[in-house]
Every structure is written in C-alpha cells, then in structure tokens.
Design a protein around this nucleic acid. Structure first.
Lengths: 244, 244
DNA sequence: CTAATTAATTGATTTGTATCAATTAATGAT
DNA sequence: ATCATTAATTGATACAAATCAATTAATTAG
C-alpha cells in the first residue's frame, strides 16, 4: 500500500470522478468541495492482500482505477469471491461489524480514493441528502447479496454462466473484462466447470472466442434474464423483452 | 392478511415491544411516541404467501409474534430461504429496489407491526440518531447476507449444521425453535441431508433427541465457531474460547 | 522475438448430495 | 385417546460438478 500526495491536476480528476458517484448525488457543490478536501488516495499493487477489518479500515473507499476481489476464505483455503470490484465501485468497510474479517485481494494495480469514517459520519450528520444516499447504497448492497445468494444456490452451472454473460452484455458490450478464473470463482465454480459451461452454451447459439462473446441473435441470452437484471437492459419491457 | 384495530391495552404492549428495538435506540420518548402513533398492526395466517415488492409493501415491518421465511424461488419451484424471521426481527421491503420480488411465506400465524415508508422517511429526516440506526440496520443486513453466502458456498453440509447448532446454542438454549425442514432449506440442503448430518455429528459428541440438542461437553460445537458468530457467546475470548 | 510463466481447456475419475422410495415418528384434530 | 396427517428418518441410486492429470493457448518478461 502506498499513500499518494495529490497534485492539483490529479485532484481535479478525482473531484470529477467523485462528483459522478451516486452516493454524492443531489448534494450542494460547496458541501462536496469541503468534503472532497479530506480525500486520501491510496494505491495497492497486484497480488497484495489486505484484511479489511472495521477497526483498521474504517473508511469509505472508491475504486478509481484497477481491479480487486472481496473474498472470504476458510481454513481449507477455499475462497468465496463476494464481489469483483473495479472502476466506479464503492466499498465501505467502515460499516462492517467488529470482528468481521474479509479480504481484498488485488488482481491489478489499484488506486482507491478514501474518506475516513469520521468525515463520512460528519457529512451524514450535516447533510440529510447524503444520509439518504448512504441508506440507498446499503440497501442496494443488501439486495445485491440476496441476489448473489440466489445465484449461488438456485442456478445451475449453465444458468450462472448465462446470467453472467447477460450482465456482461448489458454493461460491457460483449467481452470479458476479467480473467475467467476470477469470474468462475465469483460464480462459485471451478475454472474447469466454467470452461465446460461456455462450451455447452454453443447449443444455445452463444459462442466464445477467447474474451469475445458472439451471439447468433441478440436475444440468445434473454432466457437467463430476470427483472432485476433486465432493468438495466436497453430493451427492458419493450416488445422484444420477455418481461414486457 | 388482516388489519387489526389497536385497543389501548395492546397498544401499550406494542409500544413496549417497539421501544426495545435497536432501530429505536437513543431516540427521545417524545419523538418515538409521535412516531409510534402511526403504527399499523397486520396479521397473516399460516401458509399465506405474500410477494414483498417495494411498490405495495413500502413499509418497515417488525415481527411481533409468529414465524415466516423470506424466500426467493425459481421457475422450477426450487426455493432459497434467505431469512427465517421470528419474534423481534425487522424487515424493510421499503428499501428493496423496484422490480425485486421476494416472497414472505408464513409458517405460523404472524403479527407484524408496520410503519409506512413516508413516516419512516420523515423520522429519518427529522432525527439524526434514527438515520444512523437505519444505516446500522442495513449495514448489519449486508453483512449477514455476506456471511450467509459464505455459509452456502464454503461450508460442507456437516459444517453448516454444526454452525447452525452453535448459533442455536448461543441464542436459544439447546433446542430447535423451528421445523427441521425449514432449517434444512435455510442451510441450502434437503431435509434428508440435514437428518444425515445430525446423525454424523454423533461422532463429534453431539446428540439430537427430537428437538433437543445434547452435548457430551460444553465445547463440542466450538469447532464450528467463527469470530462473528462467537461474539455473542458467553465465553467469547475467555480462556476456554478458541478465539482468545 | 523468444522463452518462461500463467491461464484455459479437455478428458478420466471420484465424490457428495440430491432424488426416489419406503418406513417410522411426531403432531394435530375429532 | 385414536386416527389422520405431516414431519423426519433411513436406504438405494443417480447425477452434477469437483478433483486429478495432461495438454494447449495466451500472456508477460527479458
């Protein structure tokens, strides 16, 4: 880990970046500027591991650049990837309960912007809109983990992969942004099973060339959709959408 | 579902009950009394099912009495029990995102106390302590689902059951408070597997007589402990505790 | 550009748990 | 108390995905 002193140019970039975060939506520029002044920039290197306990990491973090995974692991060494975090994601270990240990494993060199728990709590106290935004963030987080549990428990291997491909399509324009082994771990399966599932999906008209996803027709992944996923799709509830 | 008109006596009971909820901690009696005035009591019967979408169920609910499960299910009919909710638990579908459908299936006749989203948001706006308490609740909820995912994905069947027994021991004094099939579903396994796991645990000095849990010695379940679970144990971090 | 390293794929085998089927135990209603 | 119903257990079998092992493809470093 490395603390970065911010020069004026980079500070401007960071301010722009932060202003677009939904947690800061509808807050006056003056309040924001004051708050942003307390920003810290930290960098982590590829392959670093950090245990994000609430005591030492009592901050609110924004992923400005890079890639890491939030993982839980057991004594056997098996690991659960709870979240893949890359650009624009937020993580708030300051809200973790005491004794809860979870690891951040950095997959690529990563730059985080962070705010201390005290500063965040000050803003919550002072600015009602911000506290609503924090509530919104945590509510979304709760729901994401409910859906994550659902994915782990209810979906078949093939459905998991189909669901992941669909989300990739909706967000990232048909190519894998992360190593396949990372995706496999996030979906709760081995790289072997992931690879075999990709092969299986050829029967559905879904073809994979290295990182590229090719679809026989645009709706080939729709069978793996659900309403909460679909809401971000361009075609949601239009004529062509299964949920219309 | 049935709306209950509250008489004066029962209202007093409800007020007492609510006052002890952690979400209302450290809030002035006057603010609370005013808020409690907007309370609604609703009752659900055994075997009822309700889809708790954020549109129709935009409330904050307290389980005053009864038992139900929060479940997600798929087109095959497989179900995931995300939470078992009984006395004293809180659930806030008002914080669910649009299009997120999750079901409450009532296992026993249940009495809920509820507050409308508007009233809750009013209190959030007016009372900073309450908004902090809501944040605390949602943070805890996020963490519980992370741990739930961990349980589903990383623990073996036997570890899941051992972990559940341990939590029962810490909370409820060595007896099952819920039907075994419900517990099995919550742990992501069939009743058959649950039953077999209980049999296996005899080798660990853990014996089950119908609803009763008997331990060869008091520490027989400690091997299934982790810090976040152990924090509620009487012996946490004492000499006898594995985490000391 | 090439060698070295890591990632991904493919095949063979094992394994844990679901499923199916039948029995026994517990609970609830008359 | 007895019968009917539901819950729990036990055994046999099937199956999906993990593991183990080997190969091929893709990156990364020199």
């Amino acid at each position: 880990m490395r603390r970065m002193p911010a020069n004026k140019d980079s500070a401007n970039n960071y301010f722009d970046f932060l202003s677009n975060q939904s947690i800061f939506a509808n807050i006056s520029t003056s309040d924001l500027d004051k708050f942003f002044g307390s920003m810290q920039v930290v960098q982590y290197q590829k392959d670093e591991t950090v245990i994000l306990n609430a005591e030492e990491y009592a901050n609110l973090y924004f992923a400005y650049e890079g890639l890491f995974k939030l993982t839980q692991f057991d004594q056997r060494g098996d690991e659960l990837v709870l979240r893949i975090i890359d650009q624009n994601d937020v993580i708030s270990p300051m809200h973790f309960l005491p004794h809860y240990n979870i690891a951040a494993k950095f997959v690529r060199d990563t730059t985080l912007i962070c705010f201390s728990k005290n500063k965040v709590n000050d803003l919550i106290a002072k600015n009602h809109q911000f506290s609503m935004n924090v509530i919104q963030l945590l509510a979304k987080s709760t729901q994401e983990f409910m859906q994550f549990s659902e994915m782990l428990q209810l979906k078949t291997t093939r459905e998991k992969v189909g669901w992941y491909l669909l989300r990739t399509k909706i967000n990232n324009n048909l190519e894998f942004a992360h190593p396949k082994r990372l995706i496999a771990a996030y979906l709760g399966m081995t790289p072997e099973s992931f690879s075999r599932a990709l092969t299986d999906l050829k029967n559905d008209g879904i073809f994979i060339n290295n990182k590229e996803i090719q679809l026989e027709s645009d709706d080939k992944l729709c069978q793996y959709c659900d309403k909460t996923t679909g809401v971000d799709c361009d075609l949601f509830q239009t004529q062509q959408c299964a949920h219309h």
